[in-house]
Design a protein around this nucleic acid. Structure first.
Lengths: 253, 253
DNA sequence: GCCGATTTGTCCGTATGTATC
DNA sequence: CGATACATACGGACAAATCGG
């Protein structure tokens, strides 16, 4: 249970929407009503609502109200606003997942690697290559690079378990944010060798750069997903002052 | 120029960050300093900063400050937080784009189409199939369905131009938000026939449901992109109370 | 077409909590 | 411990959009 009041109110509203307490396509009670019901300030309520807007649960319209546009069949089954990950897919489908460390190494970033990852050339790194199984099918391969001066003491044994638990609980590294890019790439011989690709010759690639509390990008991971086990959800909200031309562009038209 | 003050301040800070006025990896001036400089309230400044956090320009840390984590090479070339679209790709690479309407039709949603799009079975729809060229290479195919009772009067001639300009300027429809899902799919014979796929047998698919001001989902579009011309950027921000386990999950570990 | 009631959007000032150093 | 910085919460005021009479 989150302690921040706006998070509590966000969850209360979200639950009411998901449970059907507010009729679909209808307007929610007005702000002052909700403020009285939930016993909070206007700013707190508005912060909770804005999060629901971002997630595509409601839409707000000045002068009209807040409309419930939640769709159970399409939204209830998975988390909004993030890439559906290995663990989430597994949990949602009641599947069993396991991981395997294929390679653990120490190396220095050469020019090519530096350009791809964003590390400075010559940076000492750990390299971890991991394979993730879903129901015993190898479907995701991760290539991770960690700065040795931040993730110091990382070993293959740790990588067999949870690297992030080690970084946070043992080294007390604060993980702040992670920049990610999703692309689609042709498979490589390495993908071919390890992943159960069937007759697909492309896969979904998530490249992420992770930062600690000192602003240091200490991790670069490239996660290569079988197409059938990749899904990304998003909700684009229209900006107040935009025009039709901008919308055409924003939709690829 | 946006009229809202928090948007102005957001752009001022963004420009200063992009132009290198604030040193990379360093902390920005404290809130009270910026408030004095920019002549605004604390809430207004914080709203601007929170947007920069969402876009991966800065990271905030309670008790420490706001750190600049902008990376010119990786962020300056394209817009953050959205799918890089046809028009954006074209503009960024100084390429020429054109579109072609392959098919314009009126139909009713059958069970299969209803399940895929989210329209109720039996809903009268317009169907528009469009092909987008980049430098004379056909790279994106769009399948769009519009509710006839909302987008009434849509014709093939309008679709040859800008559908959204018609919806907004002629019909005065308010476009509020758009739920999108990104997946990777095998190519179909239709893709094969029209798109310049080379030896790729998969493509990036963006499915979007667009809502108007009455909360009506009036458009469903499936946009099928050549892998080489698709890119999605995102920034995952850590929630205050989360743990290592959650992070592992959020990163697919 | 105008006017007033309602509703959301923006902005401000202030007080208090909490993490860091 | 105190000083500093960000995080949360509140209440008030006005602006802007919508809708009905």
């Amino acid at each position: 249970m989150p302690k921040a009041k706006y998070e509590q109110i966000y969850h209360i509203l979200k639950d009411k929407i998901e449970s059907g307490e507010y009729p679909a396509q209808a307007l929610l009670p007005g702000e002052h009503t909700l403020i009285a019901e939930l016993d909070c300030s206007r700013g707190t309520l508005r912060r909770a609502v804005s999060e629901l807007v971002r997630e595509g649960y409601v839409q707000t319209m000045q002068g009209k109200g807040v409309r419930n546009i939640f769709e159970p069949a399409r939204q209830a089954t998975f988390t909004l606003g993030t890439i559906e990950t290995f663990a989430e897919s597994a949990a949602r489908n009641h599947w069993t997942g396991r991981s395997e460390v294929l390679l653990f190494d120490e190396l220095e970033a050469d020019e090519a690697l530096a350009a791809r990852t964003g590390f400075a050339p010559g940076t000492p790194l750990y390299y971890v290559r991991r394979l993730h199984y879903l129901n015993d099918r190898p479907l995701i391969m991760n290539h991770s690079y960690f700065r040795q001066d931040v993730a110091c003491g990382l070993t293959r044994a740790i990588a067999e378990g949870s690297i992030y638990r080690y970084l946070e609980n043992e080294l007390h590294i604060a993980i702040i944010n992670s920049k990610r890019v999703v692309t689609v790439e042709k498979i490589t011989p390495l993908d071919q060798q390890y992943l159960d690709m069937g007759d697909c010759n492309c896969l979904a690639v998530v490249s992420s750069q992770t930062y600690n509390g000192d602003g240091v990008m200490f991790e670069y991971t490239q996660s290569r997903h079988h197409p059938n086990f990749f899904r990304f959800q998003d909700n684009a909200v229209r900006r107040q002052g935009s025009r039709a031309e901008a919308d055409d562009a924003a939709r690829g038209a």
